[in-house]
Design a protein around this nucleic acid. Structure first.
Length: 360
DNA sequence: GGCCAGGCGCGAC
DNA sequence: GTCGCGCATGGC
């Protein structure tokens, strides 16, 4: 056995072998039909700096709420993350948000934007949610007051879909690690301010691999679901003549929900709707929301029932109404600081999982 | 070591 | 349509 080169440990797609050392797709012992993918290839990025304003906006609540998996607060106080193929450092002082970005322009399903416009769009800094509080609802009044500056980030739909399929019945830090793993081996590297970031893999990259591959890497029973969902989306991408605007992504989200075995049930579908498809009236019902609905409102029953109750009650802003309650309930009942976005933002401890490696 | 984690899918009714 | 159970894996 030649120790100098990586070894294949299996075939996980048509003619696709994967190195057991770096887990990347590599040309290994001349047995693969795929071109070599050099995991060390990292593009050095420039730095674009500036500032946007965010009145009535809280960066920490927004990026620390648990919605996004590829952001974290570093020990130096900056929020660092990668979105739409661009790495960012962000920090808020008052209503000003300083940014450093790895690119001048960012491509999204809504078109290409300058980095400043992108951040306003991505963070929704210019949109104030209007959640009305029924007179007697003291929980919601308190929650809204504490979390007023929170926004739903406009996540990349593909990343959001795969991420929430992976999130099923797993702790968030574990999900973050799995997502970072995928990016690390199948994404593109960006060297930014001395840190290595990895873009979220493209649909083709994920769909090249079958469920055995993800299972090998301990994704458990999410394995076949990730493979199926990625395959479905890669096929849609090939079939679709139109460009991938929001309407197309909404169709794809619906398709995944209807596709049994894709890993997208009611809860994940609502997360996708709310976090990436601009449906701010969607309410994902998870284990926290279920407990909260019972403890605070006496509402019990199936998740579908609780969902219908919450969406009816909240109307067009139901997503925010639920998020306030969800975050406040978790603040009061969470077991760790990472469950408690308000407490976490008051400390200076870094996030448990950060989306980059320090270059060395 | 047992319980649970931001559920889903499938088979019984 | 809805209810109950099995499902991998890791953290606490």
């Amino acid at each position: 056995m030649n120790r100098k080169f990586p070894h294949c440990f299996g075939t996980f797609g048509p003619g696709l072998e994967v190195c057991r050392v770096c887990y990347a797709r590599v040309q290994c012992q001349d047995r693969t039909t795929r071109p070599r993918r050099d995991r060390q290839q990292v593009v050095q990025a420039g730095v674009w700096e500036g500032e946007i304003t965010g009145p009535d906006f809280e960066l920490g609540h927004t990026l620390g709420s648990g919605q996004v998996f590829r952001w974290g607060r570093d020990a130096d106080g900056w929020w660092k993350g990668i979105a739409y193929g661009t790495a960012f450092h962000l920090r808020q002082k008052g209503d000003r948000i300083a940014f450093k970005a790895s690119a001048e322009g960012v491509k999204t399903y809504a078109g290409e934007m300058g980095v400043r416009d992108f951040l306003v769009w991505y963070l929704r800094t210019d949109e104030a949610p209007r959640v009305r509080v029924p007179r007697q609802d003291r929980h919601l009044r308190k929650a809204r007051g504490l979390l007023r500056g929170l926004r739903f980030v406009r996540q990349d739909p593909f990343e959001c879909m795969i991420s929430y399929i992976l999130s099923v019945q797993a702790h968030m830090n574990l999900t973050k690690r799995r997502i970072n793993f995928l990016a690390r081996i199948l994404g593109e590297g960006i060297l930014f301010l001395g840190e290595r970031y990895w873009t979220f893999p493209r649909p083709e990259a994920l769909s090249d691999l079958n469920g055995d591959y993800y299972r090998r890497h301990k994704f458990g029973w999410r394995s076949e679901r990730v493979a199926m969902a990625a395959r479905y989306m890669a096929e849609q991408l090939e079939d679709m003549d139109r460009s991938w605007d929001l309407g197309v992504w909404q169709e794809v989200g619906q398709g995944l929900y209807e596709l049994s075995g894709s890993g997208v049930g009611l809860k994940v579908a609502k997360c996708i709707d709310l976090f990436s498809l601009d449906r701010l009236d969607a309410v994902p019902v998870d284990t926290w929301v279920r407990k909260m609905a019972k403890d605070w409102y006496g509402v019990t029953g199936s998740d579908a029932k609780i969902c219908a109750w919450a969406e009816e009650r909240g109307g067009k802003w139901a997503g925010y109404m639920n998020e306030y309650l969800f975050a406040y309930y978790r603040e009061l009942n969470g077991q760790t600081i990472y469950d408690q976005v308000l407490s976490f933002c008051e400390t200076e401890i870094p996030s448990a999982e950060l989306p980059f490696e320090t270059s060395g």
